[in-house]
Amino acid sequence: NMVVWQDRRAESVTNRLQDKSEIFEQKTGLVLDPYFSAPKQAWIRENVTKQGVVTTSDSWLLHQLTGEFVTDVSTASRSLVTDLDTGEWDRELLSHFDLQDEKLPKILNSDEIAGVTRHFGGIMPVGGLIVDQQAALLAEKCLEVGEAKCTFGTGAFLLANTGKRAVRSSAKLAASFAWRTELETAYCFDGQVYTAASAVRWLKQMGFINAASELDIKAASHHDGIYSVPAFAGLAAPRWRPDVKASFSGITLSSEPSHFILAVLQGIAAQVAELVDLVESDMGSALKTLRVDGGLTQSAVLMQSVADLTQRTIEIYPSQHATPLGAAALARVASKSGGWIKDSVIEWAPSHVFEPKWRSEQAQEFRTAWATAADSAL
């Protein structure tokens, strides 16, 4: 049994700690929200079991492979109980969740060997430890300050490299370790769209499409005044409202299924555009391009909407497997007992590039109308 990241049951835990929210933000760089792992761990202890060890899936898998109980600093920094400056567990924050007596994994650098496994024949070292979105950031070679990517999976996650020192976001983005190796450390800002492919799955369940491959075929060419706030699991930055429900506005008797499909895709793109604005505001510089990966990058309608609403060039990563390729790059560093990350990341060229087709005035008009719809959903 596993509690996934979209599960909101730990809201009961975070609600009672709201008076401590500023402490969490300053120490961890994260917003106090059930999205992260420590509230889920506390909820399991309160409502499910006091037995055994409750941990994240990476630690469980590494234990099955090697017998060790470890995690890496990028994964730990997504917990709400790790100090962003030191990369160590914070005893005060653990006590707020009543987790101070829990057995916790040892935090390793991303290029450390976690242990050895015999599961694949012979003795094999296990290394290349990094949380999934940061792995994609690495694979897409966002190695310099201000370089950013967005992964379109179950949700959509925009990450931007913020450099060697920890900084906190003034726009309520999440701040985390991107990676830490023997030779280098990188931090990142992270903005989330909670439902992307999961919103497409809803379109399928409702009978608007039979499969995601039909999105571009069945989407309308114009939204016809329909705006969607696809907040099927709430809204993240900058609103952080897990209680918000999805909504459609502007529906008339002439509205067709194709308009709903386009509205959902444009609603996802509008949230990504908001995140781009927040990143640029925090960093004080504009993103010239946005690199993207994930299954939904196969939808040209969605990618064009992202280009139009962000008014940025969109570069499609040529593989749907950016996350494992990022981990593989770190495994190379680990296997060589050190080295620079840039020498281990595979060179790549975009499989497709989308340039904005909308005028900036048209994009702003749409985004203003969408923001009004989002405010109404609140």
Rank of each mutant, 00 (worst) to 15 (best):
V4C: 02
R8D: 05
R9M: 11
E11R: 09
V13Y: 13
T14G: 00
D19V: 10
F24I: 07
E25W: 04
V31Y: 02
L32S: 05
L32G: 03
D33W: 03
A38S: 09
K40F: 07
K40E: 04
Q41W: 15
A42V: 04
I44Y: 04
R45H: 13
T49C: 00
Q51H: 15
V53Q: 06
D58Q: 14
H63K: 14
L65E: 04
E68T: 11
E68I: 07
V70T: 07
S79E: 10
D83Y: 04
L84P: 02
D85R: 13
D90T: 15
L94T: 00
S95M: 07
F97P: 00
P105C: 14
K106G: 03
L108G: 02
L108D: 03
E112Q: 14
E112G: 01
V116K: 10
G122P: 12
G127Q: 06
I130E: 05
Q133V: 14
L137I: 11
L137A: 01
C142L: 12
C150S: 11
A160W: 06
T162Q: 12
G163T: 06
R168Q: 11
R168M: 11
S169A: 15
S169N: 10
A171W: 06
S176G: 10
A178V: 08
D190A: 13
Y194R: 09
S198A: 15
A199C: 06
W202H: 10
W202D: 07
Q205K: 13
G207R: 14
I209A: 02
A211P: 06
A211D: 07
S213T: 13
S221M: 11
S221L: 10
D224H: 14
G225C: 08
Y227H: 12
F232W: 05
F232V: 06
R241E: 04
R241G: 04
S249L: 02
S249R: 07
T252D: 08
I261W: 06
A270V: 04
V272Q: 02
V279S: 09
V279T: 15
E280S: 07
S281T: 14
G284V: 15
A286Y: 12
K288H: 15
T289F: 08
Q298W: 02
S299D: 03
V306I: 14
L309Y: 08
T310N: 07
Q311Y: 10
R312L: 11
T313Q: 12
I314F: 09
I316R: 05
H321Q: 15
A328F: 14
R332P: 01
V333M: 08
S335F: 14
K336R: 00
G338S: 04
G339M: 01
K342E: 12
S344Q: 13
V345R: 03
E347M: 07
E347F: 12
E355P: 13
E355C: 12
K357Q: 14
R359F: 15
Q364I: 14
T368P: 09
W370E: 03
W370A: 04
W370V: 05
A374Q: 05
A374R: 07
A377Y: 00
A377M: 12
